[in-house]
Design a protein around this nucleic acid. Structure first.
Lengths: 119, 119
DNA sequence: TCGTTTGTTCGATAAAAATGGAACTAAGCC
DNA sequence: GGCTTAGTTCCATTTTTATCGAACAAACGA
């Protein structure tokens, strides 16, 4: 369990489990957080990822995503910046995030994972 | 919702959701069921996939896997034969099952999803 | 028809998760 | 120091899941 500076604890890459990742992604808000982060070039703070829900509720969701190793959070001033742990996830479960996010070799493919209506 | 002969109801391919699939796979027994089915050439009955747990408990897990569209079940005599809905899952979420099962282009890759120790 | 096998359904209980207000902490600004 | 902003932690409540015995149902064979 790596403890970043004075910050959050994120699980080591080797300990990431499919089970925890799936649990983390089985909640609609958490899935939206992941999708929003994937779509964003830059890290995003918690407020921007709260979808109008109470802070305490969202803080709970961030914690679960962090604990599953999906998210990485660092403090920058008053805010907490979140990003996907994409490289670690890709090494540990190659193709998983790509499939979830609807990134396939074929640009026309993966309609469902991109939120588009199926052909 | 397709209702097979006199049998089980399985969701239509178009309605499969990542969220439901993730929830289904976030339980250890359910994940093992999926992995066992993937490893098996032939469909398997419920007893062979029960890992020594009570029937009523496992029946519950089968129902969730079916409702998520992960599993397909048919009656054959007294037994219920289960198989992965691999084709439907692959069409709807290309690469997802391959990543979960640790099937990658490179035979040496995806150690974690195949249950092997990471290099 | 009776008994056996396989699995589902019911129902009660226990365990786990989600929710959100309130109090609190850390960082920055005046 | 006092004030503001951004999140976390605490705590109680609700909701959802999991667990598993017991009763039930369907298919088959003797």
């Amino acid at each position: 369990m790596a403890r970043d500076e004075i910050g959050f604890s994120h699980p080591d890459e080797e300990t990431l489990s499919l089970e925890a990742i799936f649990h983390a992604l089985s909640d609609p808000y958490r899935l939206r957080i992941v999708q929003a982060l994937a779509a964003s070039a830059a890290p995003m703070n918690c407020g921007d990822l709260s979808f109008g829900r109470p802070k305490s509720s969202m803080s709970h969701h961030f914690r679960i995503l962090r604990a599953a190793g999906v998210l990485h959070t660092t403090s920058q001033g008053v805010e907490h910046m979140n990003s996907l742990r994409r490289a670690a996830l890709d090494r540990r479960f190659p193709g998983l995030m790509a499939a979830i996010l609807g990134e396939t070799g074929h640009p026309a493919a993966a309609p469902a994972a991109r939120g588009l209506a199926p052909a």
